[in-house]
Write a protein that binds this DNA or RNA. Sequence first.
DNA 1: CCTTTCAGTGAACATCCGTACACCGAAACT
DNA 2: AGTTTCGGTGTACGGATGTTCACTGAAAGG
Lengths: 214, 214
Amino acid sequence: MSIEGVAGESRAERKERTRRAILDAALDQLAETSFDSLSLRQLAKAVGIVPTGFYRHFATLEELGLALVEESFGTLRELIREVRRSDLVPDLLIDRSVEVLAEQLDAHTAHYRFIARERYGGSAVIRDAIRHELGLFERELVTDLARMPEIAHWGAADLHVLASLFVDLMVSASGELVGPRAEQPGRRREVIETLRNQGRMIVVGAAGWQPLSS
Amino acid sequence: MSIEGVAGESRAERKERTRRAILDAALDQLAETSFDSLSLRQLAKAVGIVPTGFYRHFATLEELGLALVEESFGTLRELIREVRRSDLVPDLLIDRSVEVLAEQLDAHTAHYRFIARERYGGSAVIRDAIRHELGLFERELVTDLARMPEIAHWGAADLHVLASLFVDLMVSASGELVGPRAEQPGRRREVIETLRNQGRMIVVGAAGWQPLSS
DNA sequence: CCTTTCAGTGAACATCCGTACACCGAAACT
DNA sequence: AGTTTCGGTGTACGGATGTTCACTGAAAGG
């Protein structure tokens, strides 16, 4: 067995450990290929189990993908909670949000890359799962935005427009970190800097926005 | 031979016709999978040639992908030219741009889906090629924007922020058309409507923008 | 008319793929 | 102590993959 045993470890603990190893190996492999060309055998080799062992944890590769989606959006929810905690005036809120996002991108690079890459990727099931989760995330954003006095009088359509802008920006920024060039130190700063200014510009737009009549 | 001959057709014409068939079959197949899991054999079968016949037109699959990138951005350049032709005031310009984009998305769905899907996709070569072309496109946009009197005094950094916003929006809108749900008639209108409002909101933001000091 | 070019052929290759199946050994349970 | 559960093993299978090579037949060129 290539996954070495550990002294006092229950069967459930061990299973969970292997499961984690599979998820991590998948995220690692997904840095270089897209999900729908993910190889179960290479995955198993990286984990240190035999190919068939995979099925003890996931019924199909697709199920693995959905688990990754779930996990990735878990970290995204961390983000929104993190930002919500700091109750700031709008001007500083963008800066703070971008700051938190930058931290998250560092801490969970593989997850955010996965979302950016598979959002419009080749697997319909995963694509739809991500679309669904991004929809939920956008709604959370909408309820947060609706609480802000400056735009309290906006309609649902206006809030959707604004929130979807932020979501697109966030995913794009994540996507800019997928390549090998993302490792260039200057590159990351540049992406973050652009993102911050984009956010600011949108906030200015929101401030001067005439709510839609409909 | 599965590609039937045509009466008065030179050898070069015929070769070009097969090449087109390969590109089209690839675009067709890329509606369902991502590029890096594209199958040369399935491709050949769809075209009606034997697998090895492919190599008469492209040295590798990668080269095919680069040809698709080039072709896709050809249609994108059509778009910008189309918009540039109609010299409008800023208010109407967004509406007109979105209108033209909507037409282009209809006429060249496969190309735009390809760009959206592979922008952050699994093939590094194609990803970089798309990034490069999007960079060029953004620069074109910048020079166009710089001609507008309202923002003539902006610096390069400001123009970059604005242009990259538009580029992200455009690609996102393209990406929303990848799935099977894109065929729902209401869905398309909704995407376009959202895009138009996003564009308007950004224009409002640009109008009130205080240029960066640096 | 004779020669060259070359798009498309077809067989053969080694390699990788997902997964079905019977099996094992130790942890968990009774 | 005896039995069951179950994570991981190893073999084996049929099928798909990209690429090689020598070949063909008709169009192009002399």
